[in-house]
Amino acid sequence: MDEIQNPTSLINKDYEEIELVTLDDWLDNFDELSKKGVGLIIEPSDDVYLIRDQLEFIELIALDFKNFDDGRGYTQAYLLSKRWNYIGEIIGVNAHLDQLQFMLRSGITTYQLLESYKGSNEEDYSNGFSLCYQAAANNNGLNLQY
């Protein structure tokens, strides 16, 4: 069984600890939280369109990939990153080794693997291909064939 984490804060790329709030919290307390500077933890079932016009106030966004077969996080990452140009970090939490390539190309900037994958060779799964066949949020380092 995967040991699902429910992080209440994450460290950003500047090594600052950022408090995480749920989407409901954020929407209910937008005035207060947007001034405070917090990050959001987004569930697969959350509607990211609700924060489309508020992205500049969000310190970082964590997308939860805890359910292996639930692919909504990839579309959430694409919308935030590619379509709405969110410039903060998009962190995939409860990430699965075999899905890293999909997460990173969809726009996830960094990830936290589930504990059960500790010690695995992440390179094999985050960077296993030399070629891609479609436009995506992040095709860095790939030969493009489309």
Binding site: Y74, C132, Q134
Partner: peptide, 17 residues
């Protein structure tokens, strides 16, 4: 062929319902 290629390991649509 072009559509086949495009959806080959597509990052956003490889984990559909």
């Amino acid at each position: 062929e072009l559509i086949r290629r495009w959806f080959n390991l597509h990052p956003e649509f490889s984990w559909l319902p």
